[in-house]
């Protein structure tokens, strides 16, 4: 079923079309900057790239700052000094040998112990900016009730099989890659890919979110998904993404399936985007909360994170527990 156009006809057509194209008006040039920042070839604000999520500001504001959102010049100078100082790779273990804390591979040997050297200045006292005290609101009582009920359901069965292990041990989902994306322990990077009418966002250890940017509303009856369903729109130079329809088991920060996240991506300068977010879940927090932090472009690629394929760990955890049970039985 090959395409039947002859090569000669194709060449003739190509030449004619090329000539015609030259005179077709309104052909957009390659990515050009406007006053509001660089644009893609089709005219959307250009926010594409691979971004490191590491930032110096803590998630929640230390209490001594009160409602102060920004560091003083002196405080910022100190934070910047620490951020910009090289340090030795710490191959010497700083945990006590023979303790559970020491039972871990050396993060620095795999360049995972730091932020991979890419970050931006951050003058804020915290990532969280709503509510005004910069601290996540207390969880509603039903959160503790949900957790208690879950724990009661699985008590004594946590190691029977894989099904009641954590979502990360099961290689299902890493909470640091879910919206809203917060800086994580390692591989805390994301890719933003743009094509006409779509943006794709993927955390390095997460699943791709293919987001239509035509401004459509979230569908009424969303099929629950681990990553929810995302839709987007452009507001000026800001990409706004709404996500809802999470599975109950996703439970990002112990939230419910009613979780609704709004993310906003805005270019700040040629290397940096501001990532802002708001979180609403009336069955988890009494009020919306949210924040903002800079994500920094790294001129590099994300590598495939095939988790379940290489998950020797789950087998080892279960066989380790089976061994412990045999030891305990033999000791009786």
């Amino acid at each position: 079923m090959k395409h039947s156009m002859t090569r000669l006809n194709r060449s003739i057509l190509a030449v004619a079309v090329a000539g015609a194209l030259a005179s077709v008006a309104a052909l957009p040039a390659a990515a050009q900057s406007s006053d509001s920042g660089p644009r893609t070839a089709w005219g959307d604000p250009d926010i594409a790239g691979v971004y490191a999520q590491y930032t110096t500001a803590p998630l929640e504001r230390p209490e001594q700052f009160g409602e102060r959102e920004f560091l003083t010049d002196e405080e910022f100078a100190e934070v910047e000094n620490r951020r910009l100082t090289a340090r030795e790779l710490n191959f010497e273990s700083d945990t006590e040998p023979g303790t559970a804390a020491d039972v871990h591979y050396n993060l620095d040997q795999f360049a995972l112990g730091a932020n991979e050297g890419v970050s931006s200045p951050n003058r804020r006292t915290s990532i969280v900016t709503l509510p005004a005290n910069g601290r996540i609101p207390a969880a509603l009582p039903q959160v503790a009730e949900r957790r208690t009920a879950n724990q009661a359901r699985t008590r004594g069965r946590e190691y029977d099989g894989p099904e009641f292990r954590s979502l990360t041990e099961r290689c299902i989902v890493w909470s640091s890659t879910l919206p809203p994306i917060l800086p994580g322990g390692y591989n805390s990077n994301m890719q933003i890919f743009q094509s006409p009418g779509y943006v794709m966002i993927q955390g390095e250890m997460g699943d791709p979110r293919v987001i239509p940017t035509d401004g459509r509303a979230l569908p009424e009856n969303l099929l629950p998904q681990w990553n929810g369903t995302s839709v987007g729109r452009w507001e000026g130079d800001t990409l706004v993404v709404e996500t809802a329809g999470f599975r109950r088991e996703t439970a990002w920060r112990n939230s419910s399936e009613k979780l609704h996240v709004t993310e906003k991506f805005t270019r700040v300068d040629e290397d940096t985007l501001d990532y802002a977010f708001t979180v609403v879940d009336p069955e988890t927090w009494a009020e919306p909360w949210g924040g903002v932090y800079p994500i920094t472009e790294m001129e590099n690629v994300l590598f495939e994170y095939a988790c379940t394929e290489g998950n020797y760990g789950m087998a080892n955890i279960l066989s380790g527990e089976r061994a412990r049970e045999r030891e305990a039985a033999a000791g009786q």
């Binding site: 029977d160 099989g161 894989p162 099904e163 299902i172 379940t308 087998a315 089976r322």
Partner: peptide, 26 residues
């Protein structure tokens, strides 16, 4: 495109032989 995260559906197949003796897939 909908999510087809099939990891949970393969768990019993991949790890079932390591299940605690005397228990079954819940």
């Amino acid at each position: 495109l909908l999510e087809f995260k099939c990891e949970p559906f393969a768990e019993e197949k991949v790890y079932g032989h390591l299940r605690k003796p005397g228990t079954e897939f819940p």
